[in-house]
Amino acid sequence: MKSAYRSVKEEGYLIIPEIFRGNELAQLKNACDGVLERFTIEHDREKPQTDLCAIFTIPSGSTTATANR
């Protein structure tokens, strides 16, 4: 089995199953959705009826309708 280093150096990517599960995952999602809710309110006030598909450099960053990720 390849090391994480070897996988990414050679193939460019690595999937890590189950980094977070259960309560930790729920806690992380709740925290991120809280940030999303705050940004969505701001976004809709400033640019109504426009899309939002990413929040960059949270918690104080910017929203964007297009992204590369």
Partner: peptide
């Protein structure tokens, strides 16, 4: 790359990659 909730994907961004932004496909990714 199919990820289950809680899975992580580490990648070298020098390689070719892209996302997908479809309103009907739920996405919540950190």
């Amino acid at each position: 790359v199919a990820l289950k909730a809680g899975d992580g994907l580490i990648f070298d961004p020098v390689g070719h990659h892209r996302g997908r932004y479809h309103k009907e496909i739920p996405r919540r990714s950190l």
